[in-house]
Lab assay of single mutants.
Amino acid sequence: MRKLSDELLIESYFKATEMNLNRDFIELIENEIKRRSLGHIISV
């Protein structure tokens, strides 16, 4: 996760939620978004 750019991480989050991927996977992405202080972009 740390090698993904912020932009790609956010894009991955939206794609994963759109495709209804595994909730655990989405939570991993959400946690990384929060760690990077980007939660305001997706309202996490």
Rank of each mutant, 00 (worst) to 15 (best):
M1L: 15
M1H: 05
M1A: 05
M1C: 12
M1I: 15
M1N: 03
M1G: 02
M1Y: 04
M1S: 03
M1T: 05
R2F: 06
R2Q: 15
R2T: 14
R2Y: 06
R2M: 14
R2N: 09
R2K: 11
R2A: 15
K3H: 12
K3D: 15
K3V: 09
K3R: 05
K3S: 14
K3M: 06
K3F: 06
K3Q: 14
K3L: 06
K3P: 03
K3W: 07
K3N: 15
L4H: 03
L4F: 08
L4C: 07
L4Y: 08
L4G: 02
L4W: 15
L4I: 08
L4N: 02
L4S: 03
L4Q: 04
L4R: 02
L4T: 03
S5Q: 03
S5K: 03
S5C: 05
S5P: 09
S5G: 05
S5W: 03
S5L: 04
D6W: 05
D6Q: 03
D6A: 04
D6M: 05
D6S: 05
D6K: 03
E7N: 08
E7K: 12
E7D: 10
E7C: 06
E7Y: 12
E7Q: 12
E7H: 11
E7M: 12
E7T: 08
E7P: 06
E7V: 10
E7W: 12
E7S: 11
L8E: 15
L8N: 11
L8G: 09
L8A: 14
L8Q: 14
L8Y: 09
L8D: 15
L8V: 11
L8P: 02
L8H: 10
L8R: 09
L9N: 00
L9S: 01
L9W: 01
L9G: 01
L9F: 02
L9Q: 01
L9C: 01
I10P: 00
I10V: 07
I10W: 05
I10C: 04
I10T: 03
I10E: 02
I10Q: 02
I10D: 01
I10S: 02
I10Y: 03
I10M: 07
E11S: 06
E11F: 08
E11K: 10
E11T: 06
E11Y: 09
E11C: 08
E11G: 04
E11M: 10
E11R: 08
E11H: 08
E11N: 07
S12W: 15
S12L: 15
S12A: 15
S12I: 15
S12V: 15
S12P: 00
S12K: 07
S12C: 08
S12T: 15
S12H: 13
S12R: 05
Y13G: 00
Y13D: 00
Y13N: 00
Y13V: 01
Y13E: 00
Y13L: 04
Y13M: 02
Y13A: 01
Y13K: 01
Y13P: 00
Y13H: 02
Y13S: 00
F14W: 12
F14A: 06
F14E: 06
F14P: 00
F14T: 07
F14Y: 13
F14R: 10
F14N: 07
F14Q: 08
F14M: 10
K15T: 11
K15N: 13
K15P: 01
K15L: 14
K15A: 13
K15E: 10
K15G: 07
K15W: 15
A16V: 05
A16S: 07
A16H: 06
A16R: 04
A16G: 05
A16N: 04
A16D: 02
A16M: 06
A16L: 04
T17F: 13
T17Q: 14
T17D: 08
T17V: 15
T17P: 04
T17H: 15
T17K: 14
T17Y: 13
E18M: 07
E18D: 11
E18Y: 05
E18G: 08
E18Q: 10
E18F: 05
E18C: 09
E18T: 04
M19N: 13
M19Q: 13
M19D: 12
M19C: 09
M19Y: 05
M19L: 12
M19G: 12
M19W: 03
M19F: 04
M19V: 08
N20Q: 11
N20I: 05
N20C: 08
N20A: 09
N20F: 07
N20R: 06
N20Y: 07
N20D: 12
N20P: 08
N20H: 11
N20E: 12
N20W: 06
N20S: 07
L21Q: 09
L21N: 09
L21R: 07
L21F: 12
L21W: 12
L21M: 13
L21A: 14
L21Y: 13
L21T: 10
L21E: 12
L21S: 12
L21C: 08
L21G: 09
L21P: 05
N22T: 10
N22K: 07
N22V: 06
N22L: 08
N22Y: 06
N22E: 13
N22M: 09
N22I: 07
N22P: 15
N22D: 15
R23L: 14
R23V: 12
R23Q: 12
R23Y: 13
R23W: 14
R23M: 13
R23A: 14
R23C: 07
D24P: 08
D24K: 10
D24N: 10
D24I: 11
D24H: 10
D24A: 13
D24R: 09
F25K: 04
F25Y: 14
F25L: 14
F25P: 01
F25V: 09
F25N: 04
F25A: 07
F25D: 06
F25Q: 07
F25S: 05
I26M: 07
I26E: 01
I26L: 09
I26Q: 03
I26K: 03
I26Y: 03
I26S: 02
I26T: 03
I26H: 02
I26A: 03
E27T: 12
E27R: 11
E27C: 06
E27W: 08
E27L: 12
E27Y: 08
E27V: 13
L28R: 05
L28A: 14
L28F: 05
L28T: 07
L28V: 11
L28C: 05
L28W: 05
L28E: 11
L28K: 05
L28I: 11
I29F: 09
I29Q: 01
I29C: 04
I29D: 00
I29E: 00
I29Y: 07
I29L: 12
I29V: 05
I29W: 03
E30Q: 08
E30P: 00
E30T: 12
E30Y: 13
E30M: 15
E30H: 09
E30C: 08
E30G: 06
E30S: 10
E30A: 13
N31A: 14
N31R: 12
N31Y: 08
N31L: 14
N31K: 13
N31D: 10
N31H: 10
N31Q: 14
N31E: 13
E32D: 01
E32H: 02
E32Q: 01
E32F: 02
E32C: 01
I33L: 15
I33N: 00
I33Y: 01
I33E: 00
I33A: 02
I33F: 03
I33P: 00
I33W: 01
I33C: 03
K34T: 09
K34W: 08
K34L: 12
K34Q: 10
K34P: 00
K34R: 14
K34V: 09
K34I: 12
K34A: 08
K34C: 06
R35D: 04
R35W: 03
R35N: 07
R35H: 06
R35T: 04
R35M: 05
R35V: 05
R35Y: 05
R35F: 06
R35A: 09
R35S: 07
R36G: 00
R36E: 00
R36T: 01
R36W: 01
R36N: 00
R36Q: 00
R36I: 01
R36S: 00
S37T: 06
S37I: 05
S37Q: 13
S37L: 11
S37M: 13
S37Y: 09
S37K: 14
S37W: 07
S37V: 06
L38H: 02
L38K: 03
L38T: 02
L38D: 02
L38Y: 02
L38E: 02
L38F: 03
L38N: 02
L38W: 01
G39S: 11
G39A: 09
G39P: 05
G39V: 08
G39F: 10
G39W: 14
H40Y: 09
H40M: 06
H40N: 10
H40T: 06
H40F: 09
H40R: 06
H40V: 06
H40D: 08
H40E: 08
I41H: 09
I41C: 07
I41F: 11
I41E: 08
I41Y: 09
I41A: 13
I41N: 06
I41L: 15
I42M: 04
I42N: 03
I42A: 04
I42D: 03
I42W: 01
I42S: 04
I42H: 04
I42R: 03
I42E: 03
I42Q: 03
I42C: 04
S43C: 08
S43H: 13
S43R: 13
S43Q: 14
S43F: 05
S43D: 13
S43A: 13
S43K: 14
S43Y: 04
S43P: 11
V44T: 14
V44A: 15
V44N: 15
V44C: 07
V44K: 14
V44L: 14
V44F: 11
V44S: 15
V44H: 14
V44D: 15
V44Q: 15
